[in-house]
Design a protein around this nucleic acid. Structure first.
Lengths: 84, 84
DNA sequence: TGAATATTTAGATATTTGTCTAAATACCTA
DNA sequence: TAGGTATTTAGACAAATATCTAAATATTCA
């Protein structure tokens, strides 16, 4: 859960998740949505992957990223427990 | 919301919130629950305050900290929006 | 095969973060 | 008012983080 909190603690990464909510995207398409360099985006995607918030699949030259929200359940439960 | 995510991105601070869920505690009582120094705990409490996750009130020599979970609603909504 | 495209890896750098000790501040009580 | 307790502030330092450019790797296709 540590890795998930860590991954969520960055505006760029949170926006990447929002983008992937709409549809799967290649690394390049994700990078185009931001002003920062492709290697930096690649790094953010790696952190999101480590937290299991995204999955990726190689499709030819492209790497397609998808949102995985199942790991957010632990966070939700943690927060709700704190609130109740 | 940035500050809340930031505040939650630390194991010690998350444990402080858990403690405060049970009951209000002074800074010293909180510090006793951890192996790290009082100034470090004070710093963590400051970050939690900045995020509005805790409130504090001076009671004589003591500063009593209380949990405030209302700011977690935004986080909950953010996560749920991502999931649905 | 070789050039073009997509992505990641490597290495560098500035900033942020978590921690510490020492000192300052605030309050209580004898 | 002086000494003791509680807490925060200041300043230092090591580790983690976000970013960059350059280079490496993987894939496509003419």
């Amino acid at each position: 859960m540590n890795k998930v909190f860590r991954a969520l603690n960055d505006q760029t990464r949170r926006e990447i998740l929002k983008l992937l909510k709409e549809k799967d995207l290649s690394a390049g398409e994700i990078a185009e949505a931001f002003q920062i360099s492709k290697p930096s985006i690649s790094h953010h995607l790696d952190i999101l992957s480590q937290a299991d918030l995204v999955t990726s699949e190689k499709k030819g030259q492209f790497v397609i990223y998808s949102l995985n929200t199942t790991v957010l359940d632990d966070i939700l439960e943690w927060i709700i427990t704190l609130k109740t």
